[in-house]
Write a protein that binds this DNA or RNA. Structure first.
Length: 463
RNA sequence: UCCGGGGUAGCUCAAUCGGCAGAGCAACGGACUGUUAAUCCGCAGGUUGGGAGUUCAAGUCUCCCCCCCGGAGCCA
């Protein structure tokens, strides 16, 4: 008999028909009536399926009564309307196959709530909990929405390399990739001789797929990357990971305004999609993780984002009757507290800040005509802060070269990047969106370590 | 990396001035005719993160180390 996923059984109308399901037991409650209730979850939906196991089954005493939370079983039986409260249908078992028991003396999960911190220590078992099952489904839905959104708009999915020989991508400390023996590396004049390393030169894990995306946008018009990126920063916050996933669209013949349109549309699309696909999971987060989550997501799925310039942002902050830890003045970068104040207090909605001072932004951002600012943009969301950073890229060869020199970057490493401006250069723009932060915002989960299956942070790379 | 808060039973936590290390839940045994975080009775559960020190006596005080959480910086 063919197995049906529980999410399909729960909405099935085939009352009286035979059905087969399998999954992991959440609870078993025995009745004096000589039968047991078994709640089964297979990860396909938030809700589990209630199974009634009659005492007459031949393995009832020998096996079923040993089934506890965490056990893996398959059930064959009949779908019936449930006389009890709390579920529409249930299954009356005619056969129970026990694949694996979970000794309750050792099994670390229980029906009672366990702290997220403790669950990180058992990350291999936490997807079996309500919260992490729901996070996994929402994360999946957001990834699906991402591909759907860009594919529907004729973007090409580009796989950026994860290993790079450029140590000057300008986005933070990098992890070194090497096959040399760290205890005894080959040396040349005292220094490590990377000519003998696997790639014949020093290599690192990428911090961004942007530069690769730009090369493909300069041929395929509109592209996006969606892959892991790595930062060796010693960041210990609830918003940072050493290994995290980023989505980076890049569009040719586009300016900063087109870029902001795209970011806004994309973010709204994800909210709409996940509201449609994961109502049960979101209702759970709304009730147990962050009150008011559903109202906010619903509002965001349709509302426009507020767009202001950096100069206007500084003005608004200078007029604020709050005292900030970091002083506000034109030329200073916006701190977390400033970003939060703008998006949470001043406007109380998502905010896109554009045109930042050139001195605090990356070399590749397009210089504005005022000579002071660049065509950069940050998208700020209440609760998470910066979720998108992007810009129109500098397409003028001489201006880009000047920027590279001004910032003291190694010109020779950018020969291919400069080539894009020598041959058929084109105005183009793009941004990066931190996928984990999007999942955080969508689920209300406070810590980014709890929205990725196996978080990598300083001092922690288990599982 | 900096600042602050923590680490006690399987889990969530308590322990007054330094004086016998406790509770709820889970688990286990039993009771209960369809339960929904079931309920009731009973039983059991400990190298107090690791190390050193002060003391008649340390979960508690001192020092070193490890780990976790929150905030900041860096950023997505």
């Amino acid at each position: 008999m063919r197995r049906t996923l529980i999410k399909h059984v729960l909405v099935s109308d085939a009352i009286g028909e035979p059905v087969k399901v399998a999954g992991w037991v959440r609870t078993r409650r025995d009745s004096k009536g000589g039968f047991s209730f078994v709640e089964l979850n297979d990860g396909s939906s938030f809700s589990g399926l209630q199974v009634i196991v009659p005492g007459e089954l031949e393995n009832y005493e020998s096996e079923v009564l040993n089934v506890t939370i965490g056990s893996a079983v398959a059930i064959e039986g009949q779908l019936v309307e449930s006389p009890g409260k709390g579920q529409r249908v249930e299954v009356h078992a005619t056969k129970v196959t026990v694949f694996g028991l979970a000794d309750p003396d050792d099994y670390p999960l229980q029906k009672k709530r366990i702290s997220f911190e403790k669950l990180r220590d058992i990350a291999h078992l936490r997807p079996r909990t309500n919260t992490f099952g729901a996070v996994a489904r929402v994360r999946n839905a957001l990834a699906y929405a991402t591909h759907k959104f860009y594919q529907e708009r004729d973007f090409l999915y580009v796989h950026a390399p994860m290993i790079t020989s450029s140590d000057a991508e300008g986005a933070g400390e990098m992890f070194r990739v090497t096959t040399l023996d760290p205890a005894a590396p080959p040396r040349l004049d005292g220094a490590v001789d990377y000519a003998q390393d696997f790639f014949g030169k020093p290599t690192f894990l990428t911090v961004s797929g942007q530069l690769s995306a730009e090369t493909y946008a300069s041929a395929m018009d509109r592209v996006y990357t969606f892959g892991p990126t790595f930062r060796a920063e010693n960041s210990n916050t609830r918003r940072h990971l050493a290994e995290f996933w980023m989505i980076e669209p890049e569009v040719a013949f586009a300016d900063l305004s087109d870029n902001a349109d795209l970011a806004e549309e994309y973010i709204r699309y994800m909210f709409q999609f996940v509201l449609e696909q994961c109502p049960e999971d979101l209702a759970f987060f709304d009730k147990w993780v962050q009150e008011g989550l559903l109202d906010r997501l619903n509002a965001l799925a349709t509302s426009e984002f507020r767009r202001i310039t950096y100069g206007e942002a500084i003005q608004a902050l200078e007029q604020a009757d709050t005292s900030f830890e970091f002083p506000v003045h034109w030329g200073a970068d916006l701190q977390s507290e400033h970003e939060r104040y703008l998006t949470e207090v001043v406007f109380a909605q998502p905010v896109i800040v554009v045109d930042y001072p050139k001195d605090i932004k990356a070399f590749y951002m397009r210089r504005n005509d005022d000579g002071k600012t660049v065509a950069a943009m940050d998208v700020l969301l209440p609760g998470v802060g910066e979720i998108v950073g992007g810009s129109q890229r500098e397409e003028r060869h001489d201006v880009l070269l000047e920027s590279i020199r001004e910032k003291g970057l190694p010109e020779e490493e950018y020969w291919w990047y400069l080539d894009l401006r020598r041959f058929g250069t084109v105005p183009h723009a793009g941004f990066g969106l931190g996928f984990g932060r999007m999942v955080q915002f969508t689920t209300g989960m406070q810590n980014i370590r709890d929205v990725i299956p196996f978080p990598r942070t300083p001092n922690s790379a288990d599982f």
